[in-house]
Amino acid sequence: MRNKIDSRIPRYNKLIMPTFVALKELGGSGTNDEILNQVIKDLNIPDEVADITHMGKVNQSELSYQLAWARTYLSKYGVIHNSARSVWSITPDFVGIEVLDEKEIVSAIVKKNAERRNKAASSSTKDEAPDLPEDDDPSNDDEEFPDEIKPWKEKLADILQTMDPYGFERLTQRVLRECGFSQVEVTKKSGDGGIDGTGKLKINGIFSFNVAFQCKRYSGVVGAPDIRDFRGSLTTNIEKGLFITTGTFSKAAREEACSPGKQQIDLLDGEEFINKLTEYEIGVHPITTYTIDEDFFRKI
């Protein structure tokens, strides 16, 4: 049985245009976090609504999940493109467009998905899928998950949640090294609010920063108090702080991390951590599949 989605959270089909507008306001391109923050601002979504988790899962908010679906529909329709660095950008054909027809986009993609499924299952008796009602869920089969939230990613998120905490710290150590850190050391004892490790990050082979990090293998939403506690543990020789969690950060935590006049804290949530594991193929390996172009073989 599907969990009832809080009525205060906009559904994916109502976030297609706000996502497009957010990207325009961001200069035509943006990351997932930038899009999320811009949509929250534009739609004036309260903190308590923005922080509601998706079906109780700890590494993503419901709003982020719905936005992932909105981006998927926009991408399949050709409005936006996702680069190798996970930066979304508006495609040239839509740069000059100001207003999108959300219903047309949803209808076109639903029809395309139905045609693909009918080809794959010749025994199906469906003629054509109708427009999705507003309260329907587009994730009706594994193939229709948003590209950003495939089932294997959810399984990996569960594995990270059940890892030994010191094992997670060692995994974090490996990820940071792959990202360009050196002299990465993990402390022997882990404690909430404290420093779990340190390292050096060199930029362009010239500038070096002393970085302290905290790893929170956390099954929940990290709040602003956690950020303040971590900041309070940083010593004067630390130039940057990095907070890593398998969960997600509340809107208040993200604001606290970049609060003016305070030492800035960089954040890496569960979704971004998994993206790093994927980018550097740490514990995961890609599998190549092929789609058969039946028309090609008939017409050649």
Score class of each variant (00 low, 15 high):
149 I>P: 03
120 A>V: 04
116 R>T: 12
84 A>V: 02
91 T>M: 10
108 A>E: 03
82 N>W: 10
132 L>K: 01
118 N>I: 07
82 N>S: 12
86 S>M: 13
124 S>N: 10
124 S>M: 09
107 S>Y: 12
131 D>I: 07
75 S>Q: 05
136 D>V: 02
98 E>W: 09
133 P>L: 11
135 D>A: 05
84 A>D: 11
85 R>Y: 09
106 V>M: 10
145 F>W: 15
133 P>Y: 02
115 E>Y: 05
80 I>E: 03
147 D>R: 13
128 E>Y: 03
123 S>Y: 03
114 A>V: 08
107 S>Q: 14
146 P>C: 05
78 G>W: 03
125 T>I: 12
144 E>K: 13
141 D>H: 09
144 E>A: 05
111 K>I: 07
123 S>V: 04
136 D>Q: 01
147 D>H: 09
126 K>C: 06
144 E>P: 02
74 L>Q: 02
114 A>T: 10
108 A>Y: 03
143 E>Y: 11
105 I>M: 10
130 P>H: 01
77 Y>K: 15
95 V>A: 07
126 K>D: 11
71 R>P: 00
89 S>K: 09
147 D>T: 11
118 N>R: 07
109 I>A: 00
120 A>C: 13
142 D>L: 01
101 D>H: 02
88 W>K: 02
88 W>A: 04
86 S>E: 14
83 S>F: 06
139 S>D: 03
93 D>F: 07
132 L>D: 00
144 E>I: 07
74 L>S: 02
144 E>H: 12
83 S>L: 07
106 V>A: 06
122 S>P: 07
99 V>I: 15
150 K>C: 13
72 T>V: 05
127 D>I: 14
117 R>W: 02
91 T>C: 12
126 K>Q: 10
88 W>R: 03
